[in-house]
Computed example of a mutant assay.
Amino acid sequence: MPHHTDIVVIGMGPGGKHVAGRLAEAGLHVTGVEAELVGGECPYWGCVPSKMMIRAGNLLAEARRIPGMAGRAHVTPEWAPVAARIRAEATDGWNDQVAVDRFTGKGGHFVRGRGRLIGPRRVEVDSETYEARRGVVVATGTRPQIPPVPGLVKVPYWTNRDAVAAKEPPTSLLVLGGGAIGLGLAQVFARFGTRVSIVEALDRLLPMEEPESSELITGVLRAEDLTIRTGTRATGVRHDGAAFTAGRQAGRSAPSGRSAAASRPGRAPIA
């Protein structure tokens, strides 16, 4: 027998959680379905923890500007407080019980699992069927897009989620793609001592934004000694157990004082 409800919301990320909560507060019987964490990308892997990382990196950058401007300062980067704060203050160790309780406290019914549409207003979750009297909201969100670079799927690469969960910064890091998320993580890790290279297939960083934005961020990152290669495609990735090596097609390079970090020991590329 199916479980009857007014609304089924598949995906309890930022959008789905908001819709489900508002409908429950309005007096409807709402069944929220989530396979991962209620709240989705923003509180656990995106907006909140990434801003903690960026804030920490900004503090280091500011302290390094003191000599010659306001006195003397010696800065020693330490990642442990950043990782601890992300776990304690942002993600609760990637536990969403507080968010689940907040939803059920509004009268919602929560189901942990992956929802699948099996008919009009019918959703299956782990062999249980939920039938909605009013309708189904599909808010399944997104995942990082993994570029089709030969060999990448065979190595332990990072996505933004792995980078946010890192307990220590890598020795070196190759970032595939010059979008906002990749650039933000690249700058943070560089400020904590990681040797960072960025490879962007199009002819400029932030290719979806105005050219002036690309020019500005390229100058900032180059001044912070990141290696930037635009108009360059990664042709393959290998991992020998200790180091990662990435092949590339010749392209334009925004000069810096460091060579590409892909062949040095360190963590996998961020895809």
Rank of each mutant, 00 (worst) to 15 (best):
M1T: 06
P2I: 04
D6E: 13
D6Y: 10
I7Q: 11
V9I: 03
V9C: 15
P14A: 15
G15F: 05
G15K: 06
H18Y: 10
H18I: 05
L23N: 00
E25T: 10
G27F: 13
L28F: 13
V30Q: 04
L37N: 07
L37T: 00
V38A: 14
G40R: 08
E41F: 10
W45S: 07
C47N: 10
C47F: 14
S50Q: 05
K51C: 06
I54L: 15
I54V: 15
I54T: 12
R55F: 12
R55K: 09
A56L: 02
G57N: 04
E62S: 14
E62R: 15
R64D: 10
R64W: 03
R65L: 15
I66G: 08
P67E: 03
G68L: 05
G71N: 07
G71C: 03
R72I: 10
A73K: 02
A73Y: 03
V75Q: 10
T76C: 07
P77I: 12
A80M: 09
P81T: 01
P81G: 01
I86L: 08
R87A: 13
A90D: 00
T91Y: 10
G93R: 04
N95L: 05
A99L: 02
A99Y: 06
V100T: 06
V100M: 08
R102Y: 12
F103M: 12
T104N: 07
G105N: 09
K106P: 01
K106Q: 14
G108V: 07
F110R: 07
L117Q: 01
L117C: 04
G119A: 04
P120K: 07
R122P: 03
V125E: 06
V125A: 13
S127I: 02
T129F: 06
Y130D: 01
R134D: 13
R134V: 15
R134K: 15
G135I: 08
V136W: 01
T140K: 11
T142A: 15
P144L: 01
Q145L: 12
Q145F: 11
I146Y: 05
P148Y: 10
P148N: 09
V149M: 04
V149F: 06
V149I: 12
L152Y: 00
K154F: 12
Y157M: 05
N160C: 09
S172G: 15
V175L: 05
G177C: 06
G178H: 06
G178E: 02
G179E: 06
G179I: 09
A180I: 11
L183W: 03
L183N: 04
L183I: 13
G184W: 07
Q187S: 15
A190W: 00
R191F: 01
R191L: 11
S197M: 04
I198A: 03
E200A: 14
A201R: 11
A201Y: 04
D203N: 15
R204Q: 14
L206R: 07
P207F: 05
M208V: 05
M208D: 00
E209W: 02
E210D: 14
E212K: 14
S214C: 10
S214W: 01
L216S: 07
L216A: 13
I217Y: 01
I217P: 00
V220W: 08
D225K: 13
L226I: 11
I228F: 01
I228P: 03
R229Q: 12
T232L: 14
A234I: 13
D240Q: 04
F244I: 08
F244N: 08
F244H: 14
A246D: 00
Q249L: 15
A250V: 09
S253I: 13
S256T: 01
R258M: 11
S263M: 00
S263A: 15
A268R: 10
